[in-house]
């Protein structure tokens, strides 16, 4: 057994921290689009619009039923062979697209369950005052569903942050890719991956801290 090279680890920290913005960028943009897409999918699943519902179910089934890595390879290496306008797609864009589609499928199911959990009286009251379905969903149902779905959605965001590490398989030098290169140069794999593990962990813990504040905020209407 050899001793850990702490000096190397300390030197590595600022180098790897330089890649944190790209990781967060991919995760935040991916989460932004995934939330929008998931909300649309969830509302469709609640109202079961004829024909469209079949496609939505197929979409959710596919993106839940296949590994994220397979989906990323499909987007980056496969689809451009068929759709020529995607030939020049870069790894970051492909990763964001893959994360968006993959996680929107999972999140749609959580949001759908949360929507269906909103008490029937809330739907009826919104209808009784003459709201359209869109107004009812936007003002009354989705805000209440958000409170229920929030903890699960934050968990998916955590998953997404970690999922960005797969971008390295598409040739993107992000946090994981950079660590891999550093380790290959120094042969200090243990130290390098220990540092990168710690960086991911701290990011996720910071998010968990924000999550607690988010939940207090979302629960303000329900405090007695």
């Amino acid at each position: 057994m050899r001793a850990l090279d702490f000096e190397y680890m300390l030197d590595l920290v600022p180098v790897l921290l330089g890649y944190v913005p790209l990781t967060l960028f991919m995760a935040i943009i991916g989460m932004f689009f995934a939330l929008i897409l998931a909300s649309i999918l969830a509302v469709e699943r609640v109202f079961k619009i004829p024909v469209l519902d079949g496609f939505v179910r197929l979409f959710i089934s596919f993106f839940r039923g296949t590994p994220l890595l397979v989906q990323l390879f499909l987007f980056y290496y496969g689809v451009p062979q068929v759709l020529s306008f995607l030939t020049n797609i870069d790894g970051v864009t492909a990763t964001i697209m893959g994360l968006t589609l993959h996680f929107s499928a999972y999140m749609a199911e959580s949001i759908r369950a949360a929507i269906l959990g909103v008490d029937r009286s809330q739907w009826e009251a919104a209808q009784a005052v003459g709201m359209t379905q869109g107004q009812m969903m936007y003002h009354i149902i989705l805000p209440q569903a958000a409170r229920v779905a929030a903890p699960t959605l934050v968990n998916y965001f955590i998953d997404m942050i970690k999922g960005t590490s797969l971008a390295f398989t598409l040739g993107v030098t992000e946090l994981m890719g950079a660590t891999q290169k550093e380790a290959a140069g120094s042969f200090l794999y243990f130290e390098a991956f220990l540092v990168v593990a710690a960086i991911y962990w701290i990011m996720v813990e910071a998010l968990a801290f924000l999550q607690r504040h988010l939940e207090v905020y979302l629960n303000k209407a329900h405090a007695r």
Partner: peptide, 11 residues
């Protein structure tokens, strides 16, 4: 409409 269970918007 006034509901038996009030049905105020909870949010």
């Amino acid at each position: 409409f006034v509901f038996q269970n009030y049905a105020l918007f909870a949010n």
